[in-house]
Simulated scan of single mutants.
Amino acid sequence: MALKKSFSKDGKTCKVTFTVTAEAAQGAESISIAGDFNSWSSTATPLTKKRDGSFSVQIPLEVGKEYQFRYLLDGSRWENDWNADKYIPAPFSSTDNSVVVCSK
């Protein structure tokens, strides 16, 4: 898993590419991402499957904020990003949420 960030020239937007490696996908047929940026919708932001078995999606986010998120594999299994910027306790479960920090 990986997070790749690129900042707009005006410094207001951070395009984050969220990637789930083939190893982390563990044979999943579909993966979506749910988080603060899409009202925790488990269907609004699907990742695109690549030929090598990895998945990715690019999401523009506002600079200066932190966003919690998790991946949903095959509509039934929640996973964190192994390379998130940090983790914080999830408010409604005993697990942690991944966090991406959008600052330079």
Rank of each mutant, 00 (worst) to 15 (best):
37 F>C: 10
54 S>G: 04
92 F>P: 00
59 I>A: 04
62 E>L: 08
76 S>T: 15
98 S>I: 11
78 W>A: 11
75 G>I: 13
80 N>Q: 13
80 N>M: 14
38 N>E: 02
62 E>F: 00
43 T>C: 03
43 T>F: 06
88 I>K: 12
80 N>D: 15
71 Y>M: 10
81 D>S: 12
90 A>Q: 11
32 S>Q: 06
63 V>R: 06
54 S>R: 05
74 D>W: 14
31 I>P: 02
63 V>W: 00
67 Y>P: 11
89 P>T: 08
65 K>A: 08
47 L>V: 07
85 D>F: 03
44 A>Q: 15
79 E>H: 06
85 D>K: 08
61 L>D: 05
44 A>R: 15
32 S>H: 02
73 L>K: 15
70 R>Q: 14
93 S>A: 14
86 K>I: 03
64 G>R: 10
39 S>L: 04
43 T>V: 08
51 R>Y: 05
55 F>D: 07
67 Y>A: 07
45 T>L: 11
88 I>P: 01
60 P>M: 08
88 I>Y: 01
81 D>Q: 05
61 L>R: 07
86 K>C: 10
86 K>A: 04
32 S>A: 05
92 F>V: 10
73 L>N: 03
83 N>G: 00
68 Q>D: 15
55 F>T: 02
45 T>G: 00
38 N>Q: 04
34 A>Y: 05
52 D>A: 01
55 F>W: 10
92 F>C: 06
83 N>L: 08
32 S>P: 00
81 D>R: 06
80 N>W: 00
49 K>M: 03
51 R>W: 04
63 V>T: 08
90 A>F: 01
67 Y>K: 10
66 E>C: 09
35 G>K: 05
77 R>M: 05
37 F>N: 06
47 L>G: 12
98 S>E: 04
88 I>L: 13
67 Y>H: 11
53 G>I: 03
42 S>M: 12
82 W>N: 12
87 Y>H: 09
94 S>V: 03
97 N>W: 15
43 T>W: 08
62 E>Q: 11
57 V>D: 09
33 I>W: 00
74 D>Y: 13
49 K>E: 07
94 S>T: 12
31 I>N: 07
47 L>D: 13
82 W>I: 13
35 G>T: 03
69 F>W: 03
84 A>W: 15
73 L>V: 02
62 E>S: 08
65 K>I: 00
48 T>M: 03
71 Y>A: 05
87 Y>D: 02
87 Y>S: 07
50 K>H: 10
60 P>S: 06
45 T>I: 05
75 G>P: 05
77 R>Q: 13
52 D>S: 00
49 K>I: 01
76 S>A: 12
74 D>I: 13
